Structure formats: C-alpha cells, structure tokens
Amino acid sequence: MTTNDPRAVTKSLFAAQRRERIMDELRARGAISVKVLAAQLGVSELTIRRDVNAMADQGLLSRVHGGATLRNDLQSLSTEQAPAELRYNIGMVVPSLDYYWPQVVNGARAEAEKQHVRIVLRGSTYDAADNRSHIQRLVDSRNIHGLIVAPVTSGEAGHELLRWLNTLPIPVVLAERRSPPSIPAQRLEWVATDHAFGAAMAVSHLWKEGHRGIGCLADIESPTSAHVFRGWEQALRALGVPEENRLKEDSHGAKMPNREAFFDKVLERCRATKTTAILVHSDGEALAFVQHCQDSGLSIPDDIAVVSYDDEVAHLAEPAITAVRPPKMYVGRLAVEMITSRLTEGHRRPVHRIELNPDLIIRESSVGGRAARS
C-alpha cells in the first residue's frame, strides 16, 4: 500500500532518522538513556520510548529501565536453547546509561557471554534511595542469583545502603565502588579503578613537563573525586610542593549558568598560586575549562596545561586533551568473573577486592608547553 500524503512520508523519515541516531549512540556507547536522547533530539521522552519499543520488537536492541542497550548473542538465542546454557542470572544496577558506565556494561556483557550467564540491567541515578529501589526489585523477582551494583557509598544514606547490601542472601559485587573501613561489610566484594594512582600519574607527567604549580579541579559530589583529590595531594606531598601553593577547587560550581564566573575565579587563583597545569575531573568540565581559557586569550598548553580524568570525550577537544583512562570494560568483565566464581565456589572462595590501574593517554594539551621549554 502506498500513500500520497507528504506528511506521512515526512513523519516516517523523521522516525527513521531518530532510530538511526539511536543505533549510532548504541554502537558508540553500548547503552542510551531515553531522557538524555530525547533532550538531544528535541523530542518527547514518549517518542523515544516508542522508538525503543519498536526497535526492541525488531530485535535491534534490548529495553532496560530508562533506556536501551545493544543486544548480545545470548539474547539472540531461542527460548528452547537458552535455559540449557544459561548458568546464572546476574542483576546489574549502574547510576547512568549515558556516561562512563556503557563501557562497564559492555565489558560485563562480553564476560557474561563467555560465562554463560545473563545480565539483567537496570539504570539508576546517583541517589541511595533510588539505588535501593532498583536493587530491591531485582531481589524481589526471585530470579537473580547475584548482584553487580554501583551504589552511592557516601553519607549516612550510602552507609546504610552498604550495610543492607551486606545482609542480602545473594552475593554482591561493587563496581567502581568500595565500602569504607568504618562500615563492617565483610561479605561485599568489589572491583574498582585505583583513581588515586591515576591522579598521581597525571601529576608525575605534568611535573616532568616542567610544571611546579599543579592544581586539581573536581566535583566533590562525584564518588570518584575523593580518590582523585587524594592521589593528587599525595603526589604533590611526595614532590615537596608546599600546601599553600596547591590550587584545589570543587568543580560543582562549573555548572551552568555560573560557569564563566567560576572559571574566571579559577584562573585568578591560578595566577595567585603560580599554577601552570591543572588536573580536571571529568571530561566535560575539562573541555569547558579549555574553551574558557582560550576565550580568555590563554594558550593551551603554553599558558596552562590540562589533563582530564575519565577519557570519554577528551580527544574531541582542540587541542586534544591528555587524559587518565580508567579500564572501564575490564571493571565490568572482572565483576562478572568475580561473581560467577563466587556462585560456583561458594563460601570456600575468599572475599576478593580488586583494584585496577588506569592508563595515561598523552595528547597535545599537556606536552611541549612553555614550562617544558624553560
């Protein structure tokens, strides 16, 4: 059947373009958030949900709470084949589906396929109550053998969540999270990046490039930032840099609409403390800071060198930004390997807590500047 109504043709074209964009995002990130993609495309969340539902019915993707992920080979198995091969169902709760976490999820899915286990993914937020709600739903389904979670761990709400996780009747592995020493969580296991080591690598690199004033800009509300600040401070202390000469700023002030004023304040402090290089967590703030420096007439890296933490989009800047890159896919892979081993070996297996070293990807924003030539 054909139609001569140009409005119907245009509507179909727009739907096809949206769905191609959805697939592009999934191929690049492994997962998408309905809310984020709706904002990017300028359409309603209901429109994106309809697209996701239609594409899921076609077998192109998998629906998850709040978004979608790429399908894997296990999901393509027929219902007759799957029960005979699947060993365990593993619940996985991550705080975001549009930054950092898609690579962790991809790593988990790859290892799950090798281990013949199924990942049941839920996207949550950076809120302890929301984390608990999603985890509780998985536990209540009575179809989950173990959990991989990235919960809030700070504050009383985070501490209470950790205590509760430690009492669950199924094994729990934390991904990119740790239980603080003050919380008796003897049963919890985890695999996490040594972010303090990553920050120290960045400081060492900038020091070798001739910088003696090295600052740090990070959002204290991020679970990663405390480790980044700690590694930065330990590295400067080891290098003998006096504490009064250290620029340390909470990048939470870089949120719009106060970003320009905040970065102006940072640059004033850079001049006052003779800071010529800065480590910024995360990429979004690093890109915004580089652009603000350039708009202010400063050259990168001649006037100030920049290293980002996360390496999600740092390469897209001009100049490309040197970045600390956590091994995100390996975090997901090892989390699945760890919980599968726990389910297989039971109490005979000792509690495992693994830290992985990140890499430093050196680019134009931190090399060959004025400090290195002086």
Rank of each mutant, 00 (worst) to 15 (best):
R63Y: 01
V64R: 04
V64Q: 04
H65M: 05
H65Y: 05
H65K: 10
H65A: 08
H65W: 01
G66L: 11
A68E: 09
A68T: 09
T69F: 03
L70T: 10
N72R: 12
D73K: 15
D73E: 15
D73R: 15
L74A: 10
L74F: 10
Q75I: 00
Q75R: 07
Q75K: 05
S76H: 14
S76Y: 04
S76T: 11
S76Q: 13
S76K: 14
L77I: 02
S78L: 09
T79M: 10
E80F: 14
Q81F: 05
A82V: 14
A82S: 14
P83Q: 14
A84N: 11
A84C: 03
L86V: 13
L86E: 04
L86S: 08
L86M: 12
R87W: 12
R87N: 13
N89E: 06
N89G: 06
V93R: 06
P95L: 09
S96M: 12
L97C: 04
L97W: 06
D98R: 02
Y100V: 09
Y100Q: 02
Y100A: 01
Y100E: 00
W101C: 07
W101G: 02
P102Y: 03
P102R: 08
P102D: 05
Q103P: 00
Q103I: 02
Q103T: 11
Q103W: 07
Q103V: 01
Q103Y: 03
V104N: 07
V104T: 09
V104W: 06
V104K: 09
V105I: 11
N106R: 15
G107C: 10
G107M: 10
G107T: 09
A108H: 11
A108G: 11
R109P: 01
R109C: 05
E111C: 08
E111K: 15
A112I: 12
A112W: 10
E113C: 12
E113N: 13
E113M: 14
E113D: 12
K114R: 14
K114F: 00
K114S: 11
H116Y: 10
H116Q: 13
V117K: 05
V117N: 01
V117T: 13
R118T: 07
I119A: 00
I119R: 02
I119D: 01
I119E: 00
V120E: 13
V120A: 06
R122F: 03
G123P: 10
G123N: 11
T125W: 01
Y126Q: 08
Y126E: 08
Y126C: 04
D127I: 04
D127G: 03
D127C: 03
D127W: 04
A128F: 12
A129S: 10
A129P: 02
A129V: 10
A129L: 05
D130G: 09
N131S: 04
N131R: 11
R132N: 05
S133G: 15
S133T: 14
S133L: 15
I135V: 14
Q136M: 11
Q136R: 15
R137P: 01
V139T: 03
R142I: 03
R142G: 12
N143V: 03
N143L: 05
